[in-house]
Design a protein around this nucleic acid. Structure first.
Length: 788
DNA sequence: GCGAGCAGCGTACCT
DNA sequence: ACAGGTACGCTGCTCGCG
């Protein structure tokens, strides 16, 4: 028996002689795979008198007989009360669903994958430092596993493939080169090439095998890729199989599996970290604002530098022509950028992983809902509370069909204003959940009012004991506050700061996802009354604060969910007001100053006199303009319209010059009329959220353009982005929509009347060119003659 | 048969 | 496949008119 320690990098399982073993990838001086015997199980709500009968259950499944390994008594807390269950221990994880169906009692905790169950039951922290006792390859005792920051080696890679049809077909199109990057980077290929850092091998088979050799030599803990779970790794696997290459990344044979909704691929003795999913998640929750998620765009946005620009479609032509120098440098830069993005995002992924108690690989493929779910499951086990079952079928449909009322948005009065203060509630929903102990288990009926918080909907939440959701959330918020304090002591720009900052960001993402998870139709902890109460309290606080601001003499311009914009005379008044409000708020809640803005503009809706919500521009004290909702922040408007709108906003907010603004519009119209606007400036980018080969009810312009691309053999599917220009030929806009790649001309009238003018008129209106005056210039048609 | 008006689809945004 | 609230363009239908 030897006492050991090492970082717990990954958990899987194997079944040997009818018993299940957790397989743990542990990094000490070197990485080892060790095993721990642990039986999978699930719970049933049956009396203990049934143990004998249930033990004898035997069901045939795929030619073998499945029996319980053993049945034990156990106890869990359900809605604050202790309840007895039977624990059905199984020979293998695969037996769990079989026995669950065979036992005629309500079953629980049968939908938790073995590796997760193992982490929960032993309260392990993935990537943490584990102390254990071992005997050969068997772990005999797990002593502890606490959060830690392992120093992990990484290697990034990227493959380029032959692609005469645009999208490569793994059955036919070979891999042409593989690039890699860590401290040292290079490209392997099998055609002559003069670039340095290029290694020439004989053929595709040697290419794959040489790459594996490089991976084994570098011996990374982590293999970084970009969309590698969906593309590079499955492609490598398939090509290796077809041409008979040995795909061997390490000590054990490669083990590629696809998992989950998000395509992924896992390795058996290294951690594959595909960076694409986290980037998409950041896009989805609005942390990253980019037009598309190609490595190019992402690198440009977050690293501030792009890569050699060649078009992917032409890789095969370069290959055929024998001039592969450009493709080789492109490929190398891809691997290097992937490495850079990996360095930037690994601390965040590691933090998400150790906080939500999911192994790193699972974390990279998790949606924010899964992160919260896993975190709650872990703490549910810690509190010995029964983990609720995932909903299915009609339960989900019913929840979706009955949405919960959301936030309050104030209708703004259109106009140009000076001296605007923006205040917002810090983490409004999380602070409400914590302040009022909002949780399915603390929701009670008929309790005495003194023991409860009563929400504006009438729902009652016990003040004590502190329930799972608020307890976990509070811990998260407090931990984040602690890290933020540490952050202030560090030098911005230092490596330490960047890592800590990423950790702070990770926790924020998590904390902000809790409300969404409670109100999520597929949530284990879904609770309609809880969700309704959170938003109702939110509406109450924002509306009351607005009323108090009005009473204090401010003009409240606008507010959305947790923010309030008001016009002030003295900054001091704003600070006094905030202080007064904060004294009245519950302890966990706080109204913060977001900033002061010298000038701002709110516009009216397109077809009504009323103000438009979620659309405004504020000029900051630093001269920066904060723009929300306008066409210019939308990717489905043409650059010419967006640029013109920006310049008009700038002219008005910064210079206060309407003459200047008019001149800008006039100039844009003139350029459009003369026909010397580049196609790129006219491109409208739209994402297809359904399959373009069916599934749509009406033929929209983007769909028409997509169909034209499909006809040319360009592969498009659900999720693809289509860039198109409105051309001259055709009657409807859809008929006129031509893919950017083939667009030759454009409809100047369309761009003037349907793009540039609508975008700028709503702003010019606020300069006194109001509806009535505009009518003096005639209808839409002659508007451009006024400008022209 | 035709244009106006409108509902519904679809997308992208805000917090 | 975390929530709901919102604006708005375009298609394709209905309806009244001639």
């Amino acid at each position: 028996m030897v006492k050991k320690k090492g970082y717990l990098l990954a958990i899987n399982y194997i079944v040997r002689q009818g018993r299940t073993y957790a397989s743990l990838l542990i990094k000490g001086k070197r990485s080892v795979k060790l095993y721990y015997q642990y039986d999978p199980y699930f719970l049933v709500d049956a009396p203990s008198s049934e143990i004998g009968k249930l033990s004898k259950i035997a069901v045939e499944k795929d030619g073998r007989v499945v029996r319980p390994l053993a049945i034990e008594q156990t106890e869990r807390t359900v809605n604050l009360e202790k309840k007895k269950f039977l624990k059905v221990l199984c020979h293998s994880p695969a037996d769990v669903p079989v026995l669950k169906h065979a036992i005629p009692y309500p079953a629980f905790e049968f939908d938790i994958p073995f590796a997760k169950r193992f982490i929960f039951d032993f309260q392990l922290t993935p990537n943490g430092l584990m102390r254990y006792e071992r005997q050969g390859r068997l772990i005999t005792k797990i002593l502890s596993c606490e959060p830690a920051t392992p120093n992990l080696r990484a290697l990034a890679f990227d493959i380029e493939t032959y692609n005469p049809l645009g999208t490569p077909r793994p059955k036919k199109d070979p891999i042409l080169m593989i690039s890699y990057a860590n401290s040292k980077s290079g490209v392997i290929t099998y055609k002559k090439c003069s670039n340095k850092n290029t290694e020439i091998v004989a053929n595709e088979k040697e290419l794959i095998e040489r790459f594996c050799e490089i991976v084994r030599e570098a011996d990374p803990d982590i293999l970084f890729g970009y969309n590698s779970g969906n593309f590079d790794l499955p492609y490598l696997l398939e090509r290796a199989k077809i041409i008979g290459a040995k795909l061997d990344f390490g000590k054990t044979k490669i083990n590629l599996t696809r998992k989950g909704m998000i395509g992924g691929a896992s390795l058996s003795d290294r951690i594959h970290v595909d960076l694409y999913p986290i980037i998409r998640l950041f896009g989805f929750i609005g942390v990253l604002k980019i037009s598309d998620f190609t490595l190019d765009t992402v690198a440009n946005e977050i690293l501030g530098r792009g890569k050699v620009s060649i078009s992917r479609e032409n890789i095969w032509q370069s290959w055929d022509s024998g001039n592969i120098e450009d493709v080789v440098s492109y490929s190398l830069v891809d691997a290097q950028l992937t490495m850079e993005i990996g360095k930037l995002y690994l601390p965040l992924e590691l933090e998400l992983s150790s906080i939500t108690k999911q192994q790193l690989f699972d974390t990279t493929l998790s949606t924010s809902g899964q992160l919260v779910e896993n975190l709650l499951m872990f703490h549910s086990v810690a509190r010995n509370e029964l983990i609720p079952t995932k909903p299915v079928g009609e339960t989900i449909d019913e929840r979706i069909a009955n949405p919960i009322q959301g936030a309050f948005v104030k209708l703004p009065q259109p106009g140009i204003y000076e001296n605007i203060a923006v205040l917002d509630f810090r983490s409004l929903y999380p602070s409400i959940i914590v302040s009022f102990n909002i949780d399915p288990s603390s929701l009670v009926k008929g309790k005495r009012q003194a023991e409860c918080h009563q929400s504006p909907t009438g729902a009652m939440f016990l003040k004590k004991p502190k329930a799972l959701v608020p307890a976990v959330l509070e811990e998260l918020i407090d931990f984040r506050a602690k890290l933020k304090k540490q952050l202030k002591t560090l030098d911005k720009g230092s490596g330490e700061f960047k890592i800590l900052n990423a950790r702070v960001q990770a926790i924020k993402i998590l904390a902000n996802s809790f409300y969404g998870y409670i109100a999520y139709a597929r949530s284990r902890w879904y609770c309609r009354e809880c969700g309704e109460s959170v938003t109702a309290w939110g509406r109450k606080y924002i509306q009351e604060t607005m009323e108090k601001a009005e009473k204090a003499g401010f003009t409240v311009l606008y507010g959305d969910t947790d923010s309030i914009m008001l016009v002030y005379k003295k900054k001091e008044d704003v600070l006094d007001f905030m202080e007064k409000i904060n004294k009245e708020l519950p302890e966990k809640m706080e109204l913060e100053l977001e900033g002061f803005y010298p000038r701002g503009v709110f516009v009216s809706k397109k077809s009504e006199e009323k103000g438009a919500k979620k659309k405004y521009a504020l000029l900051g004290e630093d001269g920066k303009i904060k723009i929300r909702g306008f066409e210019l922040v939308r990717r489905d408007w043409s650059p010419i319209a967006k640029e013109t709108q920006y310049k008009v906003l700038e002219a008005i907010l910064k210079k206060g010059s309407e003459q200047n603004a008019i001149a800008i519009v006039r100039d844009a119209i003139e350029r459009l009329r003369k026909g010397n606007v580049k196609m790129e400036e006219l491109a409208i980018v739209t994402q297809l959220n359904k399959d373009p080969r069916g599934g749509y009810e009406v033929i929209s312009p983007e769909l028409a353009a997509a169909k034209k691309l499909l006809a040319r053999g360009v592969p498009l599917e659900k999720g693809s982005l289509v860039s198109y220009v409105i051309g001259k030929s055709g009657s409807s806009i859809s008929e006129k929509a031509v893919p950017l790649e083939v667009a030759k001309d454009y409809d100047a009238d369309y761009y003037i009347n349907n793009q540039v003018l609508p975008a700028v008129m709503k702003i010019l209106k606020e300069l006194g060119y109001d509806e009535h005056q505009l009518k003096g210039f005639g209808k839409q048609k002659s508007l451009d003659s006024f400008f022209g």
